[in-house]
Protein backbone atom coordinates (compact mmCIF):
# COMPACT_ATOMS: atom_id res chain seq x y z
CA UNK A 1 0.00 0.00 0.00
CA UNK A 2 1.38 3.41 -0.93
CA UNK A 3 0.36 6.54 0.92
CA UNK A 4 0.68 9.69 -1.14
CA UNK A 5 0.42 13.01 0.65
CA UNK A 6 -0.17 16.17 -1.34
CA UNK A 7 1.41 18.96 0.65
CA UNK A 8 2.25 22.66 0.53
CA UNK A 9 1.85 25.15 3.35
CA UNK A 10 0.81 27.84 0.87
CA UNK A 11 -2.88 27.89 0.06
CA UNK A 12 -4.32 28.04 -3.44
CA UNK A 13 -1.51 26.16 -5.17
CA UNK A 14 -3.64 23.23 -6.31
CA UNK A 15 -3.36 20.68 -3.50
CA UNK A 16 -7.01 19.66 -3.61
CA UNK A 17 -7.18 19.57 -7.41
CA UNK A 18 -4.02 17.46 -7.54
CA UNK A 19 -5.34 15.13 -4.83
CA UNK A 20 -8.51 14.71 -6.82
CA UNK A 21 -6.63 13.95 -10.07
CA UNK A 22 -4.48 11.36 -8.31
CA UNK A 23 -7.41 9.68 -6.55
CA UNK A 24 -9.29 9.46 -9.85
CA UNK A 25 -6.24 8.36 -11.85
CA UNK A 26 -5.53 5.42 -9.59
CA UNK A 27 -9.19 4.41 -9.20
CA UNK A 28 -10.56 5.06 -12.71
CA UNK A 29 -7.52 4.66 -14.99
CA UNK A 30 -5.53 2.07 -13.00
CA UNK A 31 -8.58 0.42 -11.43
CA UNK A 32 -6.88 0.26 -8.04
CA UNK A 33 -8.62 0.40 -4.66
CA UNK A 34 -8.17 3.95 -3.44
CA UNK A 35 -8.98 5.64 -0.15
CA UNK A 36 -9.07 9.43 -0.25
CA UNK A 37 -8.42 11.23 3.05
CA UNK A 38 -9.33 14.87 3.52
CA UNK A 39 -7.22 16.33 6.33
CA UNK A 40 -8.02 19.94 5.39
CA UNK A 41 -10.64 21.67 7.61
CA UNK A 42 -11.86 23.53 4.50
CA UNK A 43 -13.30 20.18 3.33
CA UNK A 44 -13.11 21.00 -0.39
CA UNK A 45 -11.76 17.53 -1.29
CA UNK A 46 -14.67 15.91 0.59
CA UNK A 47 -17.17 18.20 -1.10
CA UNK A 48 -16.23 16.80 -4.48
CA UNK A 49 -17.42 13.32 -3.58
CA UNK A 50 -19.91 13.86 -0.75
CA UNK A 51 -22.58 16.37 0.05
CA UNK A 52 -20.93 17.85 3.12
CA UNK A 53 -23.21 19.61 5.61
CA UNK A 54 -22.93 22.85 7.53
CA UNK A 55 -21.78 22.31 11.10
CA UNK A 56 -24.71 23.47 13.28
CA UNK A 57 -22.29 24.48 16.03
CA UNK A 58 -19.81 26.25 13.80
CA UNK A 59 -21.54 27.66 10.77
CA UNK A 60 -18.40 28.20 8.68
CA UNK A 61 -17.34 24.59 9.22
CA UNK A 62 -18.38 21.42 7.43
CA UNK A 63 -19.35 18.02 8.79
CA UNK A 64 -19.79 14.73 6.90
CA UNK A 65 -23.27 13.64 5.80
CA UNK A 66 -25.04 10.72 7.43
CA UNK A 67 -23.32 7.51 6.36
CA UNK A 68 -25.33 5.23 4.07
CA UNK A 69 -24.60 2.26 6.33
CA UNK A 70 -25.93 4.01 9.42
CA UNK A 71 -28.98 2.37 10.92
CA UNK A 72 -30.24 4.19 14.03
CA UNK A 73 -32.43 1.24 14.92
CA UNK A 74 -29.50 -1.18 14.96
CA UNK A 75 -27.98 -1.87 18.40
CA UNK A 76 -24.56 -1.84 16.73
CA UNK A 77 -24.98 1.81 15.82
CA UNK A 78 -26.48 2.99 19.07
CA UNK A 79 -23.31 4.84 20.13
CA UNK A 80 -22.70 6.36 16.70
CA UNK A 81 -24.21 9.60 15.39
CA UNK A 82 -24.02 8.28 11.82
CA UNK A 83 -21.25 10.62 10.68
CA UNK A 84 -17.64 9.60 10.25
CA UNK A 85 -14.58 11.61 9.35
CA UNK A 86 -10.85 11.02 9.25
CA UNK A 87 -10.58 13.59 12.06
CA UNK A 88 -12.12 10.88 14.26
CA UNK A 89 -8.70 9.21 14.59
CA UNK A 90 -7.62 12.09 16.84
CA UNK A 91 -10.62 11.54 19.12
CA UNK A 92 -10.60 7.76 19.45
CA UNK A 93 -13.54 7.32 17.06
CA UNK A 94 -14.05 4.59 14.49
CA UNK A 95 -13.56 5.57 10.87
CA UNK A 96 -16.07 4.39 8.27
CA UNK A 97 -15.09 5.48 4.75
CA UNK A 98 -17.88 6.59 2.40
CA UNK A 99 -18.49 5.17 -1.06
CA UNK A 100 -18.25 7.57 -4.02
CA UNK A 101 -19.60 7.53 -7.57
CA UNK A 102 -16.38 5.71 -8.55
CA UNK A 103 -16.68 2.05 -7.49
CA UNK A 104 -13.04 1.69 -6.43
CA UNK A 105 -12.74 5.04 -4.68
CA UNK A 106 -13.79 5.61 -1.08
CA UNK A 107 -13.34 8.72 0.98
CA UNK A 108 -12.97 9.49 4.62
CA UNK A 109 -13.96 13.13 4.70
CA UNK A 110 -12.93 16.15 6.69
CA UNK A 111 -14.63 17.44 9.83
CA UNK A 112 -13.75 21.12 10.13
CA UNK A 113 -14.02 21.72 13.85
CA UNK A 114 -12.38 18.44 14.85
CA UNK A 115 -9.45 18.96 12.50
CA UNK A 116 -9.04 22.55 13.71
CA UNK A 117 -8.97 21.25 17.27
CA UNK A 118 -6.30 18.65 16.43
CA UNK A 119 -4.32 21.32 14.59
CA UNK A 120 -4.42 23.65 17.59
CA UNK A 121 -3.03 21.28 20.23
CA UNK A 122 0.02 22.60 22.01
CA UNK A 123 0.64 20.36 25.00
CA UNK A 124 3.74 18.35 24.18
CA UNK A 125 2.35 14.91 25.01
CA UNK A 126 -0.85 15.58 23.03
CA UNK A 127 1.11 16.94 20.07
CA UNK A 128 3.18 13.74 20.02
CA UNK A 129 -0.03 11.69 19.95
CA UNK A 130 -1.44 13.70 17.05
CA UNK A 131 1.83 13.16 15.16
CA UNK A 132 1.53 9.39 15.39
CA UNK A 133 -2.22 8.93 15.10
CA UNK A 134 -2.55 8.71 11.32
CA UNK A 135 0.38 6.27 11.06
CA UNK A 136 -1.34 4.03 13.59
CA UNK A 137 -4.63 4.15 11.72
CA UNK A 138 -3.05 3.41 8.33
CA UNK A 139 -1.04 0.54 9.83
CA UNK A 140 -4.25 -1.33 10.74
CA UNK A 141 -4.58 -4.60 8.85
CA UNK A 142 -8.13 -3.67 7.85
CA UNK A 143 -6.81 -0.59 6.07
CA UNK A 144 -3.77 -2.24 4.54
CA UNK A 145 -5.84 -5.13 3.19
CA UNK A 146 -8.57 -2.91 1.76
CA UNK A 147 -6.65 -0.38 -0.33
CA UNK A 148 -3.80 -0.12 -2.83
CA UNK A 149 -3.38 3.62 -2.60
CA UNK A 150 -4.17 6.26 0.00
CA UNK A 151 -4.35 9.83 -1.31
CA UNK A 152 -4.24 12.55 1.33
CA UNK A 153 -5.16 16.20 0.87
CA UNK A 154 -3.63 18.39 3.59
CA UNK A 155 -4.26 21.79 5.16
CA UNK A 156 -2.11 24.74 4.06
CA UNK A 157 0.06 24.62 7.17
CA UNK A 158 3.01 22.91 8.81
CA UNK A 159 1.05 22.17 12.00
CA UNK A 160 0.48 18.88 13.86
CA UNK A 161 -2.05 17.54 11.32
CA UNK A 162 0.31 18.05 8.38
CA UNK A 163 3.14 16.49 10.37
CA UNK A 164 0.97 13.48 11.17
CA UNK A 165 0.33 13.10 7.42
CA UNK A 166 4.03 13.38 6.58
CA UNK A 167 4.85 10.78 9.25
CA UNK A 168 2.32 8.36 7.80
CA UNK A 169 3.12 8.89 4.12
CA UNK A 170 5.32 6.78 1.88
CA UNK A 171 5.45 9.49 -0.78
CA UNK A 172 4.90 13.24 -0.85
CA UNK A 173 4.08 15.46 -3.78
CA UNK A 174 4.33 19.25 -3.67
CA UNK A 175 2.09 21.06 -6.14
CA UNK A 176 3.06 24.68 -6.61
CA UNK A 177 2.57 27.69 -8.78
CA UNK A 178 5.86 28.89 -10.26
CA UNK A 179 5.80 32.29 -8.59
CA UNK A 180 7.91 33.85 -5.80
CA UNK A 181 5.52 33.39 -2.85
CA UNK A 182 4.67 29.72 -3.51
CA UNK A 183 8.45 29.06 -3.84
CA UNK A 184 8.68 29.85 -0.13
CA UNK A 185 6.05 27.17 0.44
CA UNK A 186 8.18 24.64 -1.45
CA UNK A 187 11.11 25.49 0.79
CA UNK A 188 8.95 24.96 3.88
CA UNK A 189 7.82 21.58 2.60
CA UNK A 190 11.24 20.25 1.67
CA UNK A 191 12.35 21.23 5.16
CA UNK A 192 9.55 19.11 6.54
CA UNK A 193 10.61 16.29 4.20
CA UNK A 194 14.21 16.66 5.39
CA UNK A 195 13.25 16.49 9.09
CA UNK A 196 11.18 13.40 8.43
CA UNK A 197 13.93 11.85 6.32
CA UNK A 198 16.52 12.37 9.05
CA UNK A 199 14.34 10.64 11.62
CA UNK A 200 13.26 7.67 9.49
CA UNK A 201 15.17 4.42 9.28
CA UNK A 202 16.76 3.72 5.91
CA UNK A 203 14.40 0.88 5.08
CA UNK A 204 11.38 3.15 5.34
CA UNK A 205 12.21 6.34 3.46
CA UNK A 206 9.78 9.13 2.70
CA UNK A 207 9.96 9.50 -1.08
CA UNK A 208 9.84 13.04 -2.33
CA UNK A 209 8.09 12.59 -5.68
CA UNK A 210 8.84 16.20 -6.51
CA UNK A 211 7.29 19.56 -7.23
CA UNK A 212 4.38 19.56 -9.66
CA UNK A 213 4.08 22.93 -11.47
CA UNK A 214 0.44 23.96 -11.33
CA UNK A 215 -1.58 26.73 -13.07
CA UNK A 216 1.39 27.00 -15.40
CA UNK A 217 1.03 29.85 -17.89
CA UNK A 218 3.21 29.40 -20.94
CA UNK A 219 2.43 32.83 -22.30
CA UNK A 220 4.59 34.85 -19.90
CA UNK A 221 8.12 34.18 -18.79
CA UNK A 222 7.69 34.37 -15.01
CA UNK A 223 6.50 30.77 -14.65
CA UNK A 224 9.10 29.40 -17.03
CA UNK A 225 11.95 31.32 -15.36
CA UNK A 226 10.95 30.18 -11.90
CA UNK A 227 10.54 26.62 -13.16
CA UNK A 228 14.05 26.66 -14.70
CA UNK A 229 15.48 28.25 -11.61
CA UNK A 230 13.91 25.64 -9.32
CA UNK A 231 14.97 22.82 -11.62
CA UNK A 232 18.49 24.15 -11.36
CA UNK A 233 18.46 23.90 -7.57
CA UNK A 234 16.70 20.54 -7.22
CA UNK A 235 17.00 18.86 -10.63
CA UNK A 236 15.80 15.43 -9.49
CA UNK A 237 12.75 16.77 -7.73
CA UNK A 238 10.93 18.94 -10.26
CA UNK A 239 8.45 17.16 -12.52
CA UNK A 240 8.69 17.51 -16.28
CA UNK A 241 4.89 17.62 -16.56
CA UNK A 242 3.13 20.90 -15.95
CA UNK A 243 -0.55 21.48 -15.26
CA UNK A 244 -1.64 24.45 -17.32
CA UNK A 245 -3.96 27.24 -16.28
CA UNK A 246 -7.27 26.12 -17.81
CA UNK A 247 -10.89 26.99 -17.14
CA UNK A 248 -11.91 23.40 -17.67
CA UNK A 249 -10.38 22.42 -14.32
CA UNK A 250 -12.59 24.90 -12.52
CA UNK A 251 -15.58 23.64 -14.49
CA UNK A 252 -14.82 20.03 -13.60
CA UNK A 253 -14.74 21.09 -9.94
CA UNK A 254 -18.20 22.61 -10.00
CA UNK A 255 -21.08 20.76 -8.40
CA UNK A 256 -23.00 18.69 -10.90
CA UNK A 257 -20.17 18.86 -13.44
CA UNK A 258 -20.64 16.47 -16.28
CA UNK A 259 -18.73 14.37 -16.78
CA UNK A 260 -17.73 14.36 -13.10
CA UNK A 261 -14.10 13.33 -13.60
CA UNK A 262 -11.46 14.67 -15.98
CA UNK A 263 -10.73 11.02 -16.84
CA UNK A 264 -14.27 10.67 -18.18
CA UNK A 265 -13.64 13.34 -20.83
CA UNK A 266 -12.96 12.19 -24.39
CA UNK A 267 -9.46 10.75 -24.82
CA UNK A 268 -8.48 13.50 -27.22
CA UNK A 269 -9.33 16.27 -24.77
CA UNK A 270 -6.14 18.30 -24.20
CA UNK A 271 -6.76 18.88 -20.50
CA UNK A 272 -7.38 15.17 -19.91
CA UNK A 273 -4.20 14.31 -21.76
CA UNK A 274 -2.24 16.84 -19.73
CA UNK A 275 -3.48 15.44 -16.41
CA UNK A 276 -2.95 11.86 -17.57
CA UNK A 277 0.68 12.58 -18.48
CA UNK A 278 1.29 14.26 -15.11
CA UNK A 279 -0.28 11.36 -13.20
CA UNK A 280 1.73 8.86 -15.24
CA UNK A 281 4.94 10.70 -14.43
CA UNK A 282 4.05 10.71 -10.73
CA UNK A 283 3.25 6.99 -10.96
CA UNK A 284 6.61 6.31 -12.64
CA UNK A 285 8.42 8.28 -9.96
CA UNK A 286 6.67 6.19 -7.32
CA UNK A 287 7.77 3.01 -9.07
CA UNK A 288 11.33 4.29 -9.27
CA UNK A 289 11.48 4.12 -5.50
CA UNK A 290 11.55 0.65 -4.03
CA UNK A 291 8.04 -0.57 -3.54
CA UNK A 292 7.60 -1.12 0.12
CA UNK A 293 5.27 -2.20 2.82
CA UNK A 294 5.30 0.86 4.98
CA UNK A 295 4.81 -0.61 8.36
Amino acid sequence: MRIIAVVNNKGGVGKTTTSRFLAEYFSIVKNERVLALDMDPQANFSNRYLKMEIDPYQQEGRIPPIHSNYDPSSPEDKDWDGRSSIAGIFFGEMVFPYATYIPTLEISPSHSSKLLLAEAVTREEVVQKVYDQLSKFLALDDVKDSYDKIIIDTPPSKGPVTISVVRAATDILIPSIMEPQPMEGIYGMIHLWKSETLRRPKNNPLNLLGVLPNSFDRRGIIHKDHYDSLKNEMPDYVLESKIGRRLIYAEADAEGAAPPSIFMYPEKNIARQEILIACQEIHERMNAHVNQETF
Binding site: P180, M183, Y187, I221, I222, D225, S229
Partner: peptide, 12 residues
Protein backbone atom coordinates in the same frame (compact mmCIF):
# COMPACT_ATOMS: atom_id res chain seq x y z
CA UNK B 1 14.04 37.73 -16.28
CA UNK B 2 12.92 36.05 -13.09
CA UNK B 3 14.61 33.64 -10.74
CA UNK B 4 14.36 32.35 -7.19
CA UNK B 5 15.94 34.67 -4.61
CA UNK B 6 19.60 33.62 -4.03
CA UNK B 7 19.17 32.82 -0.32
CA UNK B 8 16.07 30.73 -1.02
CA UNK B 9 17.88 28.93 -3.86
CA UNK B 10 20.83 28.07 -1.66
CA UNK B 11 18.46 27.02 1.16
CA UNK B 12 16.66 24.62 -1.19
Amino acid sequence: RFSIAPDLASGI
